[in-house]
C-alpha cells in the first residue's frame, strides 16, 4: 500500500516537472538598485527544486562583484543579525526556498559598478548537485517586493 502510494506520488511529481529544464529553477530573480560607490548589494529569487533529491545553493559568481554569498537575516530580539549560510542553503526535493527582503538573500560584496534599475546582471548560481546555473537578475527599485506600494489611507 505504502509503496504504491509512494510510486503514485513520485510519478505525479515527475509528471509535473518542467520538461528538461533541469531539477532546479529560479523564478523572479532581482537585485536591489545601489547608490554610486556602493560596495554591497542584495539579490533575491524564488528557487524551486523539482528533483528527487535535496540540493543546496552554495553561492555564485558575477562579473560585477567580487563575491556572491548566501546570507540569512534573523532578528534576535530587536537586533538584526546577518550571517553567511554555512554549507549552503538546502532546497528539499519538490520544495522551494524564497530569497526575499527580511530573510535569505544573495549578498554581493565588492561591487565593481553600481546596480542601476532596469539593467540586467547575470549571476551564475552554484548548486551542490545542479552545478552552475546562469541566471539573469533584473535590477529593481529600492522598494521592490516590499508591498504597500500603493499609497492609500
Amino acid at each position: 500500500m505504502k509503496i504504491h502510494a509512494s510510486i503514485a506520488c513520485l510519478s505525479a511529481i515527475l509528471a509535473s516537472a518542467p520538461a528538461l529544464a533541469g531539477p532546479v529553477s529560479v523564478d523572479s530573480p532581482w537585485l536591489r538598485e545601489t547608490a554610486p560607490g556602493a560596495k554591497a548589494g542584495g539579490g533575491y529569487a524564488l528557487i524551486r527544486n523539482t528533483g528527487k533529491t535535496e540540493d543546496r545553493l552554495l553561492g555564485g559568481r558575477t562579473s560585477v562583484a567580487a563575491s556572491v554569498d548566501v546570507h540569512s537575516m534573523a532578528m534576535d530580539g530587536n537586533i538584526m543579525r546577518m550571517r553567511p549560510v554555512s554549507g549552503g542553503l538546502a532546497i528539499s526535493p519538490g520544495g522551494s526556498v524564497a530569497l526575499k527582503p527580511g530573510g535569505y538573500h544573495l549578498m554581493l560584496m565588492g561591487l565593481k559598478q553600481p546596480l542601476k534599475r532596469g539593467e540586467t546582471v547575470t549571476i551564475t548560481l552554484r548548486f551542490a548537485k545542479a552545478g552552475e546555473v546562469p541566471v539573469r537578475f533584473r535590477v529593481e527599485p529600492i522598494d521592490h517586493q516590499l508591498g504597500g506600494g500603493h499609497d492609500q489611507h
Binding site: R32, K39, A40, G41, G42, M73, G102, H105, M107
Partner: peptide, 9 residues
C-alpha cells in the same frame, strides 16, 4: 550602507 537588506527595507 553595506547592509543589503534590513537597512534599505
Amino acid at each position: 550602507t553595506r547592509c543589503p537588506d534590513i537597512c534599505p527595507t
